[in-house]
Structures are given as C-alpha cells and as structure tokens.
C-alpha cells in the first residue's frame, strides 16, 4: 500500500489547485452575481456591434 504515499499527496495537490482556481474566480468577481449569467446564456448571439464601428456596406460613402 505504499502507493498511498504518492496518491494522497497528489490528491492534496489537486485540492490545492481547485482552491486556487476558486480563489482566482472569486477575486475576479465571477461569484458576485449569480442570477444574471444564468439568463445571459439565453441570448442568441453577441450584442449588436456599435453603429460607429460598423463598416458602411451600401458602398455609397
């Protein structure tokens, strides 16, 4: 069962990584709002582009 000496520390490293990921996610504000992202997935596509940035496509500029 000496494999335990490798597997258990390995598990702890994975836990540490998970905690690290969670801390990063929290610090970047990903848990600040838990309700809006849930409805945001329902939007079909990216928000429309800004008219100012839109190339004029009727060619009469």
């Amino acid at each position: 069962m000496s494999v335990l000496y490798i597997v258990v520390p390995l598990a702890l490293v994975i836990v540490a990584a998970a905690i690290g990921a969670f801390v990063w996610a929290t610090r970047t504000g990903q848990f600040d709002d838990l309700s809006t992202p849930g409805v945001r997935v329902l939007f079909d596509d990216e928000p429309t582009r800004k008219p100012a940035d839109q190339p004029d496509n009727d060619g009469n500029q």
């Binding site: 600040d32 709002d33 309700s35 928000p47 429309t48």
Partner: peptide
C-alpha cells in the same frame, strides 16, 4: 438593457445584475 445602451456610441459596457 445590456444590448441597447451597449450599442450607443460612447458606452463601453452595460452590465446587468438581475439579482440586485
């Protein structure tokens, strides 16, 4: 509310928090 102001020139971002 995110898309309409977001498309106006000069608005960088409009971000909604539904819960609050």
């Amino acid at each position: 509310i995110e898309a309409v102001p977001g498309a106006a020139p000069g608005v960088v971002e409009s971000r909604v928090d539904l819960g609050r």
